[in-house]
């Protein structure tokens, strides 16, 4: 089953099961050319599916108010870059709702975006807003890498009482993998060991897990065993899994498509430096998108990308 089909499966199940779940129509398949069968879903739940105009702020604000009223809206924003247009509503209204009520109001909406460098997206269609989001309190962040986790994390997101931003990487939508039948839930805050290894820990999420696994396969040919940790969610973060792995390997590489300043990699590296300094044999290494906008030309885009080659090179640099 593809990642997209698994994701849709979780939404269909939740809508069939719980009449509080609503879908603000969007393009889950996006520009990937993937055609998902939403037809029967719309037939069954026409009253809970609405078609949005190009009004990200208004839609996220309305979904937030609806969530406060007890609905569980799923809001596909499409390309992750567009989320910035709803930033105020997400950060201040949805993200602040629980705190601002002293714990009495919840805003259980799911905002779904496709982030990342997708080939020709250029400056305004390639954003990875997860690091900026991570700096905002009150928002859960899920970033699956496999079809099974796409399904399981989406179910958790829908039934979470917090606002959740659910990030798919555009280049994961066609990824194939086994998916459990039925109501499959993957809890937030539980990282997965995507590949075990003894020599170095590579922490990643979303598409970077795929890159890290490719790097690990290359490294294995040279006798270097990399352990790949798939975070699956940033909020909550499974610090324990990271520190346990680094405790075994003594080396840390973090692969991250955000630009390096205040990135996912920065936060993970800082966390390990603070809480696991004695576990480290070498200083942690961050493998980020280079500190630039994302260029449109494929050659320039590739030059910026944190890929398997750069991850493998970072690992080798730690093995001296």
């Amino acid at each position: 089953m593809t990642y997209s089909e698994a994701l849709l499966g979780a939404i269909v199940e939740a809508m069939d099961e719980d009449e509080r779940v609503a879908l603000v129509w969007g393009s889950l398949g996006g520009v990937s050319g993937i055609k998902l069968d939403f037809g029967s879903l719309r037939d069954r739940h026409a009253d809970r599916i609405v078609d949005p105009p190009i009004s990200e702020a208004g839609i996220v604000g309305i979904a937030t108010g609806a969530a406060m009223a007890g609905l569980r809206p799923i809001v596909p924003i499409g390309t992750g870059s567009f989320l910035f247009r709803a930033w105020d509503q997400l950060i201040h209204e949805a993200g602040g709702a629980h705190y601002m009520s002293n714990g009495r109001v919840t805003a259980p909406l799911v905002i779904h975006i496709r982030h990342g460098m997708r080939g020709g997206g250029g400056v305004q269609h390639s954003q990875s807003p997860q690091a900026m989001l991570w700096n905002a309190p009150g928002i859960e962040i899920a970033m699956p890498s496999t079809p099974a986790d796409a399904k399981g994390l989406m179910r958790t997101a829908i039934f979470s009482d917090n606002p959740t931003v659910f990030l798919d990487h555009q280049m994961l939508l066609r990824r194939e993998g086994p998916v459990p039948d039925g109501k499959h839930a993957v809890p937030f805050g539980k990282a997965a060991v995507a590949r075990p290894g003894r020599d170095v820990t590579v922490v990643a999420a979303s598409l970077q897990v795929v890159a890290a696994l490719a790097a690990a396969a290359t490294l294995a040919a040279d006798g270097i065993e990399a352990e790949v940790i798939d975070l699956r969610s940033l909020v909550p973060l499974d610090q324990e899994a990271i520190l346990n792995s680094v405790g075994r390997t003594g080396r840390l590489v973090v692969a991250d498509e955000c630009a390096p300043r205040c990135s996912i990699a920065s936060e993970i590296a800082a966390t390990v430096a603070e809480k696991g300094f004695d576990l480290l044999k070498k200083a942690p290494v961050r493998v980020n998108r280079l500190p630039s906008h994302v260029a449109s030309s494929p050659v320039l885009e590739d030059a910026l990308r944190p890929d398997a080659g750069r991850i493998a090179a970072a690992v080798r640099g730690l093995m001296d």
Binding site: G70, E93, S101
Partner: peptide
């Protein structure tokens, strides 16, 4: 439920609360 001090910030929330009430048939 919630008051926004950002100018215009609560206008969509009010609409959203009503939208939720409509779908939940309260």
């Amino acid at each position: 439920p919630h008051t926004s001090a950002l100018v215009g910030g609560a206008v969509p929330l009010a609409a959203g609360s009503a939208f939720g009430a409509k779908l939940l048939k309260t």
